[in-house]
Amino acid sequence: MTTENRTIVHNALAGLVETGDVDTLASFLSEDFVHHRSDSTTSTRTEWLAAVHAALGPTAGMRVEILHLLADGDHVVVHSRRRLPDAGPEIVVVDVLRVTDGLIAEVWEIIEPVAHAAANASWWQSARH
């Protein structure tokens, strides 16, 4: 199951990252798919695909580098580095995807601008002293 789920996510993202192919990604999502953001907002399959198309579609310009693709049971974790278009900031993203019956059913997304990484880790530094 773990290997199959990793392959499903890899195949869903491959065309998207290479060419901005949102339609292939859509074919890997369940009809009741839910996207969760760290600010507690959620979006439906349709809403999320529209946002992905706007950010990563063929003319959108965001570049994505997948750094890690890890799987355990029905969950797959994708760690990526993304460069926003028009000289926008570089961000690091961790997505946790849940795969059910061969389709991606949910994704939780955590985003951090690279420029904020040091400031966001300051609590860790002060806790160690």
Rank of each mutant, 00 (worst) to 15 (best):
A71H: 00
E65S: 12
V93Y: 10
A71S: 05
L67E: 15
R81A: 13
T59A: 09
D86E: 09
D72T: 06
V92L: 06
D86V: 05
V77M: 10
V93G: 07
L97R: 01
L84F: 01
I66E: 05
R63C: 03
V93N: 09
D74P: 11
H68R: 15
M62Y: 08
H75N: 13
R83N: 11
I66A: 05
V93H: 06
M62W: 07
A71K: 00
D95F: 09
G88C: 03
D86W: 02
I66D: 07
L70I: 15
D72H: 06
R81D: 10
R63F: 00
S80M: 14
G73H: 03
D86P: 04
V77H: 10
G61E: 07
D95I: 01
V94G: 09
H75G: 05
V78P: 06
L97Q: 06
V77E: 00
S80G: 11
A87V: 03
D74Y: 02
P58R: 01
V93F: 07
G61V: 12
H79T: 06
V92M: 06
V94H: 06
L69E: 14
G61Y: 07
H75T: 14
V96C: 02
R83H: 11
R63A: 05
V94S: 11
V93D: 07
D95S: 13
H68A: 15
P89E: 15
L70K: 00
A87M: 05
V76C: 02
S80F: 10
V96T: 02
P85E: 12
R83G: 09
V78N: 11
L84R: 04
R81H: 11
L69D: 12
H68K: 14
D74V: 05
E65K: 08
E90F: 12
P85R: 10
L70T: 13
A87T: 06
I66Y: 04
D86Y: 05
L67S: 14
D72F: 05
P85S: 12
G88L: 03
I91E: 15
G88R: 02
E90N: 11
V76N: 03
P58T: 04
V64E: 08
V94K: 04
E65Q: 09
L97Y: 09
G88W: 01
G73A: 09
A71G: 07
D95V: 08
D95R: 07
P58L: 03
R83V: 11
V64M: 08
A87Y: 01
L69Q: 13
E65L: 11
V93T: 08
V92E: 14
L67Y: 12
V92T: 08
E65V: 12
T59H: 09
V78C: 13
R82E: 15
L70D: 07
R63T: 10
V92W: 07
G88E: 05
L67N: 13
A87C: 04
I66N: 03
G73V: 04
